[in-house]
């Protein structure tokens, strides 16, 4: 904890707690089938989004994936607008158009989520190119999974970002699984970028993705590098998808992974870890944690109530975008 100031440590914990508690609420209510959108939760992976976004400034941009609630919230996206989006309501962050997989809150710097694996990577490089062309002191960060690192566009984008020294952070959130396919059936050995490039061209690092402070520290280095005009970084955050690919954890089919592995990772819960560290460092006591829990619970409760009261978009809203090229 010595590398991180108390305020940031508490903010990291709070950011992770909101993601976790909202995920749990979604899991609990999802079987009621009011949220008719495929939800991909980040249970156990909260430290990646929280750590990276804490290192970004309000003027920086982040892009996420289909598993995007965590990055959206950590970047400051509106929680009520996210919940309303899951309920398909007009008050949703995308007016009920995007659903769980396509979130955006430009005011917060969350520039969008793509459900095409790897598709957001070059877009982030392009956003960084725009910053660089205008000489702005801003960076773009893009979250993507281990599956996306198998797409050719990942290689192409890193190459271009290195070539142009773009202020972009490639955040590889390696959770070990692509639906039910383990990393071992998709990749042999290390990611080539960790060994293959001059460190002056690409800052590349592996980091414990269940340690928010560690992610924050590495992301901070990447952001400083980008702001100095030194170019892109690639952080491979090693974490684990303790839940299923989509929907509540209870819907995760049996038979494709060793449940002891899952139990081991659950034990490494990033939220509990940060809580223990805060306690040890004397930065928060049980009363402070209870207060935080209550605040988060109230925020989530209010968001669900508001979402349920909000109107649905109607047929006229389809017409608004018909022949949208015009």
């Amino acid at each position: 904890m010595k590398s991180i100031d108390p305020e940031t440590a508490l903010a990291l914990y709070r950011a992770m707690l909101r993601i976790r508690r909202l995920g749990e609420r979604i899991e609990a209510e999802y079987p009621e089938d009011e949220m008719k959108t495929p939800v991909h939760l980040s249970t156990g992976q909260e430290a990646v989004a929280a750590g990276v976004c804490a290192a970004l400034g309000p003027g920086d941009l982040a892009l996420g994936t289909h598993r995007g609630h965590a990055a959206y919230l950590a970047k400051g996206g509106s929680l009520p607008a996210l919940v309303a989006e899951l309920f398909g309501r007009a008050a949703g962050c995308c007016g009920g158009r995007g659903g769980s997989m396509h979130l955006a809150d430009l005011a917060a710097g969350y520039a969008g989520g793509s459900a095409i694996v790897g598709g957001n990577i070059p877009i982030a490089a392009g956003m960084a190119l725009a910053f660089a062309m205008r000489g702005e002191d801003r960076v773009a960060a893009v979250f993507f999974g281990d599956g996306a690192a198998e797409e050719g566009v990942f290689y192409e984008s890193v190459n271009f970002a290195v070539l142009k020294r773009l202020p972009v952070l490639f955040i590889l959130e390696n959770n070990g699984w692509s639906v039910c396919s383990p990393l071992s059936s998709r990749r042999a050995g290390e990611l080539a970028f960790h060994r293959g490039l001059d460190p002056a061209l690409l800052f590349s690092a592996k980091v414990d993705g269940n340690d928010a402070a560690a992610v924050y520290a590495k992301a901070g280095k990447a952001v400083r590098r980008a702001r100095q005009g030194l170019g892109p970084s690639l952080l491979e955050c090693l974490t684990y998808r303790v839940g299923g690919h989509a929907g509540p954890e209870a819907w995760d089919p049996p038979g494709y992974r060793d449940l002891r592995e899952k139990a081991r990772w659950r034990h490494r819960c990033p939220v509990a870890r940060m809580r223990r560290r805060l306690l040890r460092a004397g930065l928060a006591d049980s009363e402070a944690f209870s207060r935080m829990e209550e605040e988060v619970a109230a925020e989530i409760e209010a968001a669900f109530a508001l979402a349920r009261k909000s109107p649905f978009p109607g047929p006229a809203d389809i017409a608004a975008f018909l022949h949208s090229e015009q």
């Binding site: 490089a125 392009g126 960084a128 050719g152 566009v153 192409e156 984008s157 190459n159 271009f160």
Partner: peptide, 24 residues
């Protein structure tokens, strides 16, 4: 403002899109 690119058509189309979304 006028530059050669790698052959990476997929990424460069995404780069163009990202730049466009960001004011270019």
């Amino acid at each position: 403002r006028v530059f050669d690119t790698p052959l990476s058509e997929a990424a460069l189309a995404g780069v163009a899109l990202g730049a466009a979304l960001n004011g270019m």
